[in-house]
Write a protein that binds this DNA or RNA. Structure first.
Length: 493
RNA sequence: GCCCCUAUCGUCUAGAGGCCUAGGACGUCAGGUUUUCAUCCUGAAAACCGGGGUUCGAUUCCCCGUGGGGGCGCCA
């Protein structure tokens, strides 16, 4: 079994200091997949008492935006993924934004050029280049043996160029992946890949290699979509005389159609989940289980517990479909576990318009918590606590009840509530009193009293119990609503 | 097309050659509790991609198919 070999390997690797990074580019909202990569890196780091580093890969000047960098940091904070070094915190190996490391890249770029390991390429951009380009063989440039003086002459003459790595031919690049064991590529399928637009503008594969080296990164744990970048990076490391970090490639998170999770499937931006009222505990728990499990039947874990349990050899090899159903279940679980006071703080933002007082809202949250899958639903599900409900008379009907009986039921409730003292308007008292009254009304079917009562109070078919609702609404308001219900029926005749 | 990765219920997964009559969770369905909904409890349906090896014995190890995914940018 693959895992078996991996296990021994992973453990023996960890000798020197573990330094691990995530390197997102600030070109879009923080993605749920990035969150999982970050989490796995973080868990691995903490488990091995290493350092967790955030590096911003903003070499693409046109697409990178400052506010996306902030989004990355905010979301990591929210998840509880603390950095040891990042652009804000700083650290020994900074700066942590690639846009601020131009001079470092330049130095190595010159070195590769001088040694003939990289070259200026003057070939024109290919027609229709881009990801829709028709498939081509690996490209070895005709300029790869152009001498540096010749190249410089062309540059002075104003010819446009790009810097490419001179990829050796007929060579095997193999590495031991932390998760998938041995992976092997032939350089013939790689070709002379680009490493910089010019001395000031490095490209991804090159910048990442320099930074991983300069920042003393020991393990690179990233999505499987980077698997084919790894041999390129190893090639670069070899020609620069750098040691290679250990690589581990995580399976991808997939949409329902099994392709890489993207915007056209679900929500992918973490802040959108946050806005909807998914708790960070739930997100952490859920994404941890996407492609990993501890080998037991347990499903619920805190971040701290995950650190303790985590190991790379339990990571799955194949992609995992993102199942919103399961996320909702986990979220509901964490909402139910949350102490009311804390939940109230999180929920208040959804009620900004209503301007209600905390004590009242707290009671509402208390009785509504159990049926919440995400916080944003609280508004829709508790409207009747804030305004007189509108509903169709037919909703008042329980089973085969006729109008006459409904009226009788509501009037019984009305008289009963009017007789009940204010101090008894507590859930516990009302529970007992209502039940007793309901049985008195109909020994076999308490619904004949309680259903019309509950609908009169809430106007919906699914709600907390009448005793809970009445205790929050108070005697006066409850009576008012029953009278309205009675009038609704009587005025129809 | 070429290269790489991958394969257990619908989904996330357990499984380390005999403990497998393949286990758990979400979802689904059926019951119970409850005035309703939710919670909670009980139960059910639901999977080892195919073919060859290896072995006394393969879900498990190997090979070949097939399926799925990813990559093949002057993006990261």
């Amino acid at each position: 079994m693959k895992q078996k070999t991996n296990k021994n390997k992973t453990e023996s690797i960890i000798k020197s200091e573990v330094r691990v990074r995530i390197a997102p580019s600030p070109t879009g909202a923080f993605h749920i997949g990035t969150a999982r990569t970050a989490l796995f890196n973080f868990l691995f780091t903490k488990k091995n008492k290493g350092k967790f580093i955030l590096r911003i890969e903003d070499t693409d000047k046109v697409r990178s935006q400052k506010h996306f960098e902030q989004d990355i940091i905010d979301n990591l904070d929210w998840l509880g993924i603390k950095r040891d070094e990042d652009p804000i915190l700083g650290g020994k190996y900074g700066p942590y934004r690639q846009s601020e490391r131009t001079e470092i890249y330049k130095k190595y770029l010159k070195k590769l050029l001088k040694e003939g390991k990289a070259f200026y390429c003057f070939e024109a951009k290919k027609e229709g280049q881009g990801r829709l380009e028709s498939f081509t063989e690996a490209h070895f440039s005709k300029d790869r043996d152009l001498s540096l003086p010749e190249a410089k002459k062309k540059i002075r003459a104003g010819e446009s160029y790009i810097i490419r790595f001179k990829c050796p031919k007929k060579q095997k690049i193999a590495f031991e992946d932390l998760i998938r064991k041995k992976v092997e590529f032939n350089t013939d399928v790689i070709g002379d890949f680009s490493i910089a637009k010019n001395l000031e503008e490095p490209l991804y594969n090159f910048a990442a290699v320099i930074d991983d080296y300069e920042m003393k990164i020991s393990h690179v744990i990233r999505g499987e979509d980077h698997l084919s970048n790894t041999p390129k990076q190893i090639l670069l490391q070899q020609s620069l005389g750098f040691p290679s970090p250990q690589y581990g490639h995580l399976p991808l998170i997939l949409g329902p159609d099994k392709t890489k999770l993207s915007k056209r499937h679900n929500t992918v931006s973490l802040s959108d989940y946050r806005k909807d009222g998914y708790l960070s505990e739930a997100i952490v728990n859920f994404i941890a289980l996407l492609g990993w499990n501890p080998g037991t039947d347990r499903e619920i874990f805190s971040l701290i517990e995950l650190i303790d349990l985590f190991s790379l050899d339990k990571v799955q090899l194949a992609g995992a479909v993102f199942d919103l159903n399961k996320l909702d279940w986990i979220n509901g679980y964490y909402i139910r576990q949350k102490p009311i006071k804390e939940l109230l703080k999180l929920i208040k933002v959804y009620f900004e318009k209503n301007n209600t007082d905390d004590a009242y809202l707290e009671k509402v949250v208390q009785v509504s918590r159990d049926r919440l899958k995400k916080l944003v639903n609280i508004v829709r599900e508790t409207e009747f606590f804030f305004e007189i409900p509108k509903y169709d008379n037919s909703l008042l009907v329980w089973k085969d009840m006729q109008e006459e009986e409904i009226l009788k039921s509501l009037k019984t409730s009305l008289i009963f509530l009017e007789r009940t003292d204010d101090f008894q308007f507590k859930k516990e008292d009302l529970d007992v009193l209502f039940l007793r009254e309901a049985e008195r009304f109909n020994e076999k079917d308490r619904g004949r009293l309680l259903w019309p009562l509950r609908v009169a109070l809430t106007g919906v078919s699914a709600s907390p119990s009448p005793s809970e609702v009445a205790s929050i609404l108070g005697k006066k308001e409850s009576i008012k609503r029953i009278k309205i219900a009675i009038k609704k029926i009587e005025s129809k005749n």
